[in-house]
Design a binder for these strands. Structure first.
Lengths: 336, 336
DNA sequence: TTGTAAGCGTTATCAA
DNA sequence: TTGATAACGCTTACAA
């Protein structure tokens, strides 16, 4: 078996307590003993068993993260931001995938409790009061990231981009560029932050300018390329008066939408402008280059994990924190 | 604090041993006691502390995975395949990011040892003998995935697609379509499986047909969109006789390459055919739709984790296992 | 079938 | 400053 603290103690002719003290330099140990112990530790390549340690210290240096889909680049970037900080602080990341199903999310919250993680980052889809109740019951701190709670008061700390404002800005940008007939390919209706809130920002911007829009201008997709394609097809087929611009709630659907339009005779951006959301890297290499709203999910993850650390160390943090967004003008939107 | 096995024992008026037996149904327990215990467990929502359990059982139900970059869709899909199986088996995934640096990889191998993981999936860049030695020293089983060892005998179990054959097939496909002047945008030279091996497959296919290619037809990128763009630029600028096809070692670089060609007057596929590798989803939505070699990284991850499980349960498994690849014909390659 | 008690590898308390 | 020794929460001989 691996070498234990007792082996070290024996070989260094001291007590296990002393070895422990050296490891954690918790209390003063005389220099000579310290050196003797350290030498043996080095020589035997001793690493304290983190299970035993966690058992008594009630601290594992493990952070849990729950995301709907690991292979989604948005959550990839988020995870990378989180991990960059964890690694530097000596924490490890336990990654769980929920598929966006609430039942699974609740189960995973339990799994992470079992694993005695020090804290959890949660990227959900619809964080309703049932979920919030479940979270409040856990003994570990939780930070919502990418998604705020959809019901009740704000009781769980949250790091997020301002979806309403971002969509408001994006839609206003289209309006400023002369567009009045602006359709929307939105996220799922059950997705609070990235579905409902974004829809909201769009509506507010239009209303502010007294622009009316037919219901047939609004479609709900599921953030996949495919659904962007489908939604665009519906808008195209169901409207004799085509929009001059389509605001799309993520880049993947935006590209799906453009792909559909390539099967028709309307061209982007000459006939219809398309605006995306996220600013994933491929948007820059697409043609036409995608105008979009940049969200740095890396930064969002980073801010979330920093917040979680503060919570773990009992510091006070504002309940809701926003990270900035930015309009990225490229080719797929034109001024009319 | 959370409820312990002792609390349960007390409340069910039995010994902790009995409770433990019920939990693990290790030994026969009389039905009545079993029910009594289970009721209390249910009622108090008791979950055995996995640290204490891991400490004594030398088993944590945690699998470690080391990848260069979590946000890369290839490793995203890989991780998802791995996770799908783990979740169903009651295992959790500890995800570590190495940035592809050997030093970091070795460190992470140690971190995972500390965490007492039951096994590790390793997706490296250059698994040389130093790394292999390090791996052999660990007490947990390791499966290489996406990358084989570059030196010495095959001692570590490996699940991978056949890079040589895949590139051989892809290049042959281009030849069959009438191309003779075939350039290559390859992976990094220090990347054994995805760099050197793929280069090899390309060369073998050409040699077999006695096709000679100038050095200026071969460029090394780093798998990023940007580097695909740059490599294509070099090939374009350094060859008065342009190739009629370019084999590109991943889809991202292929799209970067096409992007560059759009800045020139040569068109794809009319003047130059472009073939990618990986078959990521966006390639289907790009224009022209990308002809590519499909590798299912999800399946590769799945097979790797299944292999690791067999190893964990001391079953014998072939040292090297391949997952299949497939040529996907789309628009970006044309017959001449 | 059930219970008692000895670990598992640490840290923390309390004397010395 | 150091060393016994009691936790931490569980599993598993060994006894009963």
């Amino acid at each position: 078996m691996s070498v234990t603290i007792e082996d070290i103690a024996k070989e260094a002719r001291v007590s296990v307590a002393t070895v422990s003290r050296v490891i954690n330099n918790s209390k003063a140990v005389s220099p000579e003993l310290k050196k003797r112990v350290n030498d043996v530790i080095q020589k035997r390549n001793f690493k304290p068993n983190s299970l035993a340690r966690g058992l008594i210290m009630k601290k594992t240096n493990i952070i849990g993260i729950i995301v709907p889909d690991i292979s989604n680049p948005v959550f990839g970037a988020l995870t990378r931001g989180i991990n960059s900080f964890c690694q530097q602080k000596g924490y490890t990341l336990m990654v769980c995938e929920s598929g966006g199903q609430q039942e699974k999310e609740i189960e995973l919250l339990g799994v992470l409790a079992d694993k005695k993680v020090d804290g959890v980052l949660f990227a959900g889809v619809d964080v309703n009061s049932a979920l919030v109740e479940e979270m409040k019951r856990k003994r570990y701190p939780i930070v919502l990231v990418t998604q705020e709670a959809s019901e009740g008061e704000e009781v769980i700390h949250t790091v997020i981009h301002d979806n309403v404002k971002a969509m408001y800005d994006a839609t206003s940008f289209l309006i400023e560029n002369g567009h009045q007939k602006i359709a929307l390919i939105c996220g799922p209706e059950n997705d609070y932050s990235s579905g409902q809130k974004r829809l909201n920002g769009y509506k507010v911007a239009l209303k502010e300018q007294n622009i009316e829009v037919p219901d047939s201008y609004i479609e709900h997709g599921d953030f996949s390329f495919e659904s962007g394609y489908e939604c665009m097809r519906k808008i195209y087929e169901e409207n004799s008066a085509l929009p001059t611009a389509v605001m799309v709630c993520n880049d993947a659907m935006a590209i799906g939408a453009i792909r559909f339009l390539k099967t028709t005779k309307v061209s982007v951006p000459a006939d219809i402008s398309i605006m995306g959301f996220d600013d994933l890297e491929f948007g820059r290499y697409f043609s036409p280059e995608l105008t979009t709203v940049r969200i740095s999910y890396f930064d969002e993850g980073l801010k979330a994990i920093k917040t979680l650390f503060k919570l773990i160390h009992q510091q006070t943090v504002p309940v809701t924190q926003f990270i900035p967004h930015k309009i990225i003008r490229r080719i797929s939107v034109r001024k009319i």
